[in-house]
């Protein structure tokens, strides 16, 4: 996985002189914890990086969520073409700080823009995405009742920038519908002993662009609650994203992950750094 990431990134950085990066700053969003472009926890319809039509771009990110009893470290990279296609890989390591141990999964994802342009059409930009997730070690998820060690999430996202909305600032709205079997986004496996159905979940984000480089926002992620051993709750966060330039962005946030594996009130910070070429 590390080698894949390295080769992908290095290959892109050195081979791609086509990186014209014409898109407007911030319109690529940032890399979510699953590697798909979006906010921090919600995939948006935007395509990662700054490749406009006919152009190619790459991004790499590293992020950390630190809540009371857990730490989620994510690292990943993506490739984008034509402002239509986004391919991404991510690796998540979820440390069970107070319980002991670690869960980890790999995520390979693709996103395709179906219609609309974030900035220029009345119709929101609409994209379809698929994320394939695979756990490294199924022992713990299996022990708490998960059915599978891998799963496929399919989502439909709509994103739109509305100009001059709040105090003359532009507002980005995003709504995502996700079909998933994942428990705690897959870290606790997929499905349960008595349920192997897809659930339809709503995820939403709103971000206000204070200027071209700084956005503040909120996110909500509905989650299924399938495992009998413990409650799973919806996630929320508030964030500030700083698009330093078209090559670097830094996002910081405050997250509320609710109850995880019987430990309630998991709140803490989110930090993410993304590089784009």
């Amino acid at each position: 996985m590390k080698i894949t990431l390295f080769t992908l990134t290095a290959g892109l950085v050195f081979s791609c002189s086509c990186a014209a990066n014409s898109k407007i700053i911030a319109t690529g969003g940032t890399s979510s914890i699953e590697g798909s472009a979006g906010g921090g926890i919600v995939p948006w319809a935007v395509i990662n990086g700054y490749a406009s039509s006919g152009e190619m771009a790459a991004t790499a990110f590293i992020s950390r969520v630190g809540v009371d009893d857990f730490t989620l470290n994510s690292v990943g990279a993506s490739l984008a073409y034509d402002n239509n296609w986004e391919w991404s890989v991510a690796r998540q390591r979820f440390a069970l700080d107070s319980i002991g141990g670690e869960l980890s999964q790999n995520i390979i994802a693709v996103k395709y823009r179906l219609a609309g342009q974030l900035l220029y059409t009345a119709l929101p930009q609409i994209s379809l995405g698929v994320q394939y997730k695979k756990l490294h070690d199924f022992t713990l998820p299996q022990a708490v009742g998960a059915r599978d060690d891998s799963g496929l999430d399919v989502y439909l996202a709509a994103s739109k920038v509305l100009f001059n909305q709040v105090a003359g600032r532009n507002l980005l709205l995003n709504a995502t519908l996700r079909a998933t079997k994942a428990n705690q986004t897959g870290l606790l496996g997929f499905g349960s002993a008595d349920n192997n159905n897809y659930r339809l979940m709503f995820e939403g984000s709103a971000a206000l662009l204070l200027n071209y480089n700084v956005a503040i926002g909120v996110e909500f992620k509905q989650k299924p609650d399938q495992l009998a051993f413990a409650d799973e709750q919806h996630w929320r966060d508030v964030f500030v994203a700083w698009f330093v330039n078209k090559h670097l962005s830094v996002t910081a946030g405050y997250v509320d992950l609710g109850s995880i594996a019987g430990l309630n009130n998991q709140q803490g910070y989110y930090l993410s750094v993304e590089g784009a070429w």
Partner: peptide
């Protein structure tokens, strides 16, 4: 030019895309 005026102008120009 103020950010609000910039955004007002962008709001007028963006829809010309089609």
């Amino acid at each position: 030019i103020s950010i609000s005026a910039q955004n007002q102008l962008l709001a007028l120009l963006a829809p010309m895309y089609k």
